[in-house]
Design a protein around this nucleic acid. Structure first.
Lengths: 161, 161
DNA sequence: ACGTCTTTATGAATGATTCAAAACAACTGA
DNA sequence: TCAGTTGTTTTGAATCATTCATAAAGACGT
């Protein structure tokens, strides 16, 4: 028996092993940070008869079971990824919306302990970096037209807070 | 002439001074982290005939001009705040969605310089802390029922990355 | 193989946000 | 002060991502 990893991942998480779920996991393995729609399209090629709504349900189940992480960058649809439990953050391009992993962070990361939390019991921290992806950078410098920012999400917070 | 601060803020930003804009700024001054809908309701009381869509336009203009910051916590509608340019982050309650400011961060914040950025030109960093607000904390401990989490957004990233 | 309970398929509904065109009002110069 | 120009708001409808409801299908334990 080969490539049964995904199957046991599901079983271990208390979920039944179904074709749509296996396909979704595989799709995310190939193409991380995919939107529901992207996962659906990939799954649908090898598994006709699948519906977009099914993918919503599947991904919600996988997320709930902790097999998949859901990120939701401002101004874009939700995206899913397989890498979980390894403390990484994201860079997203403010022009095209591309997302990459960032293997954060140096040492103890004192700045991720907020100074005072207004009585909140802080459980998790989420860091998103915004900037220009290599492709969009090239465009900006190539045609040095002042490239009006095509609206992704407003950011006014300088790096290194 | 008094209380013309907002007026000159607008003018200085190259925007015309209009009643809806002044009202929106005032509403945000009273109640930060408000959704478009909340701003609209507050504005509508003193300025009947205002429409929700107008608030969308107004807030977009203010955001574009840098007078207002838009935040978009996963799982909730966009929220707006007046505090800008002062490098602060947010704690949001994963149960009720309440948002508070966090006057981050200690010193140089080395962790907000990602180790390698895959060629991205990083411009801004955004930090969101997730946890339980005082009220929801009380509920959790009060009735020690295992309080099923009412779904706000999935988080699996431990604090101090 | 059987029955039960989870999961998927299908279709419709909701909520937040945006678009388009026409009415309106703020600033400019006369 | 007045009219023109142009930026804003109004109104109504459309779009997108996501969720809900019901019934059919499938996975797993016996």
């Amino acid at each position: 028996m080969e490539s049964n990893e995904a199957g046991s991942m599901l079983r271990d998480a208390g979920l039944r092993v179904t074709a749509p779920r296996l396909a979704a996991l595989e799709a995310l393995g190939d193409h991380s940070h995919a939107t529901v729609d992207e996962v659906y399209e990939r799954v649908a090629t090898g598994l006709p008869g699948t519906s977009l709504q099914a993918m919503y349900v599947v991904l919600a189940a996988l997320t709930g079971a902790g097999l998949v992480r859901r990120i939701e960058p401002a101004g874009s649809a939700a995206r899913y990824e397989l890498r979980i439990g390894d403390n990484h953050h994201h860079v997203v391009c403010s022009l095209c919306g591309a997302v990459e992993d960032v293997d954060c962070v140096v040492g103890e990361a004192p700045c991720l302990m907020p100074s005072h939390t207004s009585g909140y019991l802080v459980q998790t921290a989420e860091v998103t970096f915004w900037g220009l992806c290599p492709a969009c950078r090239a465009l900006e410098t190539g045609d040095d037209a002042v490239a009006s920012v095509p609206a992704a999400a407003p950011h006014d917070q300088p790096v290194r807070s």
